[in-house]
């Protein structure tokens, strides 16, 4: 019996030792194939309008996760309410991806215009994350549509006026002290709420 135990002891030690030498696997299997990525990039479905974002913020939609991909100093000067700051260069770190891929949450990237947020979207999609979006037009469009909406001309269709009314009200909501980013930090709300209705990203824009 003793000899068996000695054998087992040595075996176990060797196996444990072996764990040092097994290389850590890369997460390659999760990356999206290039063909699929190309297909996804050409879809406009990743865009959400500033109107949609404004609506979600006002309604306190718990599935909304706003991610500001600009550098930290710009984020500190001004950002959207409850937005998290993940500078574009940090997207590839594990911490940068903490807000992505959370069950039931929709992550919306934004920057000053589309360029950085689009890049963030491409990188994140390649890493395999789903439910990620880009706010079309970025903060520039936000200012133009929500904060300073342009009154439509008299000949415009009724929907344009409705949109304008919504934007004016939203603008007041945000500039009535709420346009400065609030310090609530990241909301990891695990509440199951009604699914966000996929409205067509058509009405208005920049």
């Amino acid at each position: 019996m003793n000899k068996n135990y000695i054998f087992l002891t040595v075996l176990m030690l060797l196996l444990a030792l072996g764990t040092f030498f097994v290389p850590k696997k890369q997460l390659v299997s999760h990356e999206v194939k290039p063909e699929k990525l190309l297909l996804d990039i050409t879809q406009p479905s990743r865009y959400v309008t500033t109107d949609q974002v404004a609506k979600m913020i006002i309604e306190h939609d718990p599935t909304l996760e706003l991610i500001d991909v600009r550098p930290a100093d710009e984020y500190d000067k001004f950002s959207l309410p409850d937005a998290v700051n993940v500078p574009l260069k940090d997207i590839l770190t594990p911490e940068g991806q903490d807000n992505l891929g959370i069950e039931d949450m929709n992550a919306v990237f934004f920057s000053n215009d589309d360029i950085m947020s689009d890049q963030a979207w491409v990188i994140s999609t390649r890493l395999g994350y789903k439910n990620i979006y880009v706010m079309k037009g970025g903060l520039n469009c936000w200012i133009e549509t929500i904060i300073n909406p342009v009154e439509p001309p008299e000949t415009a269709p009724k929907t344009a006026f409705e949109t304008y009314q919504f934007r004016k009200a939203a603008g007041m909501y945000f500039t009535g002290g709420n346009s400065i980013k609030t310090d609530t930090g990241v909301k990891k709300a695990k509440i199951k709420v009604r699914r966000k209705k996929k409205e067509k990203a058509a009405s208005g824009g920049c």
């Binding site: 176990m12 072996g18 764990t19 097994v22 290389p23 850590k24 696997k25």
Partner: peptide, 20 residues
């Protein structure tokens, strides 16, 4: 405990289990 620890690490190495 030790069998499971070592086992999990080998499963990760063989690509059978995604430890993350």
């Amino acid at each position: 405990v030790i069998v499971a620890m070592v086992g999990l690490l080998y499963f990760d190495y063989f690509g059978w289990l995604d430890l993350s």
